[in-house]
């Protein structure tokens, strides 16, 4: 039996409708990934109970929580803007959600949580003296302190800079592994989702587009949207390769193609005389942008392209046949 089950959730806005059903397992870290406006945060608010105009049914650990008010759902939430309470210090913030816990125990747990988020000794600090990264760590500790049945994280790192995001996402994964709390993590950042998720759910225009492990979604995307959203790649119209007539486009990742001059294998598919448009040095290799019969092709290359015309070799088993949009 799934741990969290959302059945037929529906929320109608003027130009947008959320319409989704999904479930997740206990102890799982599920990332909801999707472009801006795809309904990720609306979904999270609905699960938390903050948005009560959503119709549908929520089952948590087998219990119907649809009509239970927010404060009784035991669903924790970490917000984009941290939402720490400015009128309380760090300690009081963390202890806010500890209900029916003796004072001594509260203190002990607070210390433990502060250590968990690598901020020991911060108990008496004022929250408006914290940096963004520190504030979000405290927000995490506060949410965990309330011992939620499930923890929702709404783009918790969008207000932080890139190096900090990388450090904090591994903290979140560690907290998940230590506490075994079921987590639902919303982000629009593919790299972030790949880095921490057990599974990823991709949303688009209020609907579920795909669900799977990061590897599954990257290697075997069910459609072109998921393929493009999970990483870079190139699309070729099928008549040019006449490979699988049931599907009308072929897709491949930049790392699955080469532009080196070599003798093609039987297993290779060749795009001859592509024009090198531009290339970027990425640090480890070059991302080369080519044009083949008016179509843009991306190829990773160890070497900088020397000539303006090149042949592209794609291994046939890496070629994904998909439906065009």
């Amino acid at each position: 039996m799934p741990y969290l089950e959302c059945r037929n959730l529906k929320r109608v806005f003027q130009h947008f409708t959320l319409d989704i059903s999904f479930s997740m397992e206990k102890g799982e870290l599920l990332c909801i990934l999707g472009p801006s406006g795809s309904g990720k945060s609306t979904l999270l608010s609905a699960i938390a109970g903050i948005d009560s105009s959503v119709s549908g049914q929520f089952l948590l650990d087998g219990k119907d929580i649809t009509s239970i008010p927010v404060q009784k759902r035991r669903i924790g939430m970490v917000f984009q803007d941290f939402s720490l309470f400015p009128s309380m210090n760090v300690e009081k913030n963390i202890q806010y959600g500890m209900r029916d816990v003796p004072a001594e125990e509260k203190e002990r747990q607070t210390e433990k949580l502060l250590e968990m988020v690598s901020l020991p000794g911060y108990a008496k600090r004022k929250v408006n003296e914290l940096s963004g990264g520190e504030a979000q760590r405290i927000a995490l500790a506060r949410a965990v302190a309330a011992k939620p049945q499930i923890l929702l994280l709404d783009e918790p790192m969008s207000a932080l800079d890139a190096p900090l995001r990388k450090r904090l996402r591994s903290t979140i994964r560690q907290i998940h592994d230590q506490t075994k709390i079921t987590m639902l993590y919303v982000t629009h950042d593919r790299e972030e989702a790949f880095a921490i998720a057990d599974r990823i759910m991709i949303m688009r225009s209020g609907k579920l587009e795909a669900m799977g492990t990061p590897q599954e979604l990257y290697r075997n995307p069910p459609n072109l949207f998921v393929a493009n959203f999970t990483g870079e790649g190139s699309v070729i119209k099928v008549p040019q390769i006449a490979y699988n007539p049931a599907k009308n486009v072929a897709f491949f990742r930049p790392e699955d193609a080469v532009i080196k001059k070599c003798i093609p294998n039987e297993t290779d598919f060749v795009l001859k005389n592509a024009l090198v448009e531009s290339y970027e040095f990425t640090g480890s290799d070059y991302m080369v942008r080519l044009s083949y019969k008016g179509q843009e092709i991306l190829v990773r290359s160890n070497q900088r392209p020397e000539e303006s015309i090149a042949d592209i070799y794609v291994s046939k088993d890496k070629l994904l046949m998909l439906d065009a949009e």
Binding site: V70, Q71, R74, M77, F79, S83, Y96, G97, A143, A146
Partner: peptide, 12 residues
């Protein structure tokens, strides 16, 4: 978000 955050932490 502040009162809503409080609610997710069990406060009314």
């Amino acid at each position: 978000r502040l009162p809503l955050a409080a609610k997710t932490l069990g406060g009314d």
